[in-house]
Computed example of a mutant assay.
Amino acid sequence: MYTVYALYSADFDKLYIGYTSNLEQRLKSHNELGKKDWTKRYRPWILVHSESFQDKTSAIRREKELKTGRGREFLRKLIPKN
């Protein structure tokens, strides 16, 4: 099982889109463990969207869709307003 996810950094108004086979560990990596990652600069991250897929190919396809202009527009509508 694979999960496509979108993270949002409210402090920097940044979106990050990725996929993983272990969402809990990946979120921990983005927010705590990562030392050299691009996402380290924009902490803290909140999960704004996730979708599950049976196979890696489908997850990668969806990740690419979400990284398009239309996909990012869809994700921006999910961001909580403060």
Rank of each mutant, 00 (worst) to 15 (best):
Q54K: 11
S21Y: 10
E51C: 09
Y16G: 02
M1I: 10
R62F: 05
E51R: 07
R43V: 01
R76A: 14
V48W: 00
M1V: 15
R76E: 12
L15V: 04
N22M: 05
A59K: 04
K81A: 13
E24R: 14
S58I: 12
K77R: 10
K77P: 08
L47F: 04
Y16R: 07
G71P: 00
H30L: 03
R43N: 00
K40F: 10
K28V: 11
L23D: 08
K35N: 04
F53N: 04
D37K: 12
S52K: 13
L47R: 09
L66C: 08
L47A: 09
L27P: 01
L7H: 03
N31M: 00
T57P: 07
K64S: 06
L7W: 00
E24I: 15
K64L: 14
L78T: 14
R72A: 07
F53P: 11
S50R: 05
L78E: 08
A10T: 11
I17Q: 01
T20N: 01
K35Q: 09
Y16K: 08
Q25K: 15
P44Q: 01
V48G: 01
K64V: 11
D13V: 06
Y16M: 02
L78A: 10
A59N: 05
D55C: 08
L47Q: 05
L47N: 10
S29P: 10
S58H: 07
